[in-house]
């Protein structure tokens, strides 16, 4: 049994390492607080860039990168448990943010945000262990500009080897796509200069419960 003290240490370590990998941490008191945090971040961000042609989608003003933008704000909740999704949906409805549940392939040019759950955390590297079997969920976490991942503090482990048996159990259940996600998408392929937001999200927010 992991003691209370150790658990607090792991959370602190996770938060410390998150900073190293440019992941943002938000500690939420409850689902309602998380939903309003998400809505706030989405409303305050720049409009989403449309990186490809999308049939029937109206193009907004050009972004600072000279790319057309999406007029409405969208959050994808693919794969999120219904109870949690409902809370976010309600918050978003009040703020005029649209929700995508499935059919993410219709939004491949990009959208503002996605919310998904991490099953475990790995404190040593601020890694989120994310079951990604569902194609829509996988796409939603990649095509968004901001990825929000929920993580229960109780499920934070120390290092990679401590998730070996969890990974094995999950992979036993049948075909499985599992991801370790550590910070937003990044590259240093040009002159070794770090650039955040290569192909996937430009920001990763881990919301701790």
């Amino acid at each position: 049994m992991v003691g209370e003290k150790t658990k607090t240490d792991l959370v602190a370590l996770f938060c410390e390492k998150a900073e190293v990998v440019s992941a943002k941490i938000y500690e939420a008191d409850d689902m309602k607080a998380a939903a309003s945090y998400i809505a706030k971040v989405v409303l305050e961000k720049d409009p989403c860039e449309l990186l490809a042609e999308e049939a029937g989608t109206e193009k907004g003003p050009l972004s600072k990168n000279g790319v057309p933008t999406r007029l409405d704000r969208h959050i994808a909740l693919s794969g999120l448990p219904v109870a949690k999704a409902k809370v976010i949906e309600k918050e978003c409805a009040d703020q005029g943010i649209k929700i995508i549940y499935d059919g993410v392939r219709n939004y491949l040019a990009g959208f503002d945000a996605s919310v998904a759950e991490a099953q475990f955390g790995i404190a040593d590297s601020a890694t989120c262990f994310v079951v990604s079997d569902d194609e829509n969920m996988r796409l939603s976490t990649m095509m968004c500009e901001i990825s929000f991942l929920f993580l229960d503090k109780k499920n934070i482990r120390k290092d990679l080897l401590e998730v070996a048996s969890d990974l094995r159990t999950i992979q036993k259940k049948g075909p499985a796509y599992t991801a370790f996600i550590t910070g937003p998408s990044r590259t240093a392929d040009i002159e070794r200069v770090l650039a955040i937001g290569a192909h996937g999200p430009l920001e990763l927010h881990v919301i701790l419960f």
Binding site: I122, S125, D133, D134, E135, D159, A176, A179, F180, G200
Partner: peptide
């Protein structure tokens, strides 16, 4: 994986590690 990213790019882990175990669904 404890060594590879550390030794390659001085990272604790790369941003993505994708585990594929079997053929998952496709729309």
């Amino acid at each position: 994986m404890l060594i590879l990213p550390r030794n390659a790019t001085a990272q604790l882990l790369t941003s993505y590690v994708s585990w594929i175990c079997g053929a998952t669904n496709s729309e």
